[in-house]
Design a protein around this nucleic acid. Sequence first.
DNA 1: AAGTATTCCTACCGACACGCTATGATTTTA
DNA 2: TAAAATCATAGCGTGTCGGTAGGAATACTT
Lengths: 147, 147
Amino acid sequence: MKLSTRVRYGARAMVDLGVAFPDGTVSVRDIAQREGVSAKYLEQIVSRLKAAGLIVAHRGVQGGYSLARPPASISLNDIYHVLEGDTAPTDCVDEPGACPMKNVCPTRDTWVELKESIENVLQNTSLQDLVERKGQKVGPHCLMYHI
Amino acid sequence: MKLSTRVRYGARAMVDLGVAFPDGTVSVRDIAQREGVSAKYLEQIVSRLKAAGLIVAHRGVQGGYSLARPPASISLNDIYHVLEGDTAPTDCVDEPGACPMKNVCPTRDTWVELKESIENVLQNTSLQDLVERKGQKVGPHCLMYHI
DNA sequence: AAGTATTCCTACCGACACGCTATGATTTTA
DNA sequence: TAAAATCATAGCGTGTCGGTAGGAATACTT
């Protein structure tokens, strides 16, 4: 059940944008530097988030990205679905006809339960929660957000 | 969060052994045939379960495998850990020093929560539950367990 | 004693995703 | 016009997945 770096980097980048919301735009270069991550790789990740409509781009000098909606309206589940795909642990969970043994399989029910449990955690964590959490961790002495 | 075939096949194989518990031993060939799975591949999966001590082997004619303990004492979490590894979605969840940003990272708390949630589901599902569930699905008309 | 059914062991292999790097084109602002 | 940024695409090494293959060891049955 390991998460890919895509979703981990992407989530942290989104928090970065959430901190700057609603006034600032942040460049990939800045995010990458703060998070200690390859800028070129992060570029690709962020471009997916843009394609999904979670963020908007501003090209040119002084450009960057910014959230498309308030952070309270974006959940970790949204981000997960863009960068990692479906939370269903097996195809048979969502697709009815994926497995011929569906009606006899004893494990499927638990896989369904597992998905619901995962999705519940991700859905209940909004970007706003993460931004506030970050604020608490970094503390008031570091308003510039340089860590 | 897709599960590998290893853990899916393995879990179903364990149910198969759970149905036969405590008197019967079941050969890999039989399980593979019932579950519609490559016998050679299942052999490797089952060998891991044996190495982990969840099941015991009986070689030779009329041999096969049987559960090492009652199905009520084996959880899906046990099986998962043998065949899929850790449930922690990131290294930083379990290993203290895995990430230098651990104390500042806003997402880590959710990854911890995610692991707990996953583990909770898996831990609360025992092999006995699965065996009973299978019995209900297959129904009393099919005691021979041929589906 | 022989044959047979089973587990056990190991090697190999194609396909795919991950986690990047690299190069350049395009757009916008200063 | 130069610089800073996004956008687009290609490539690449590494590892894991999902098997296949071939045989050796063991134990039961006849």
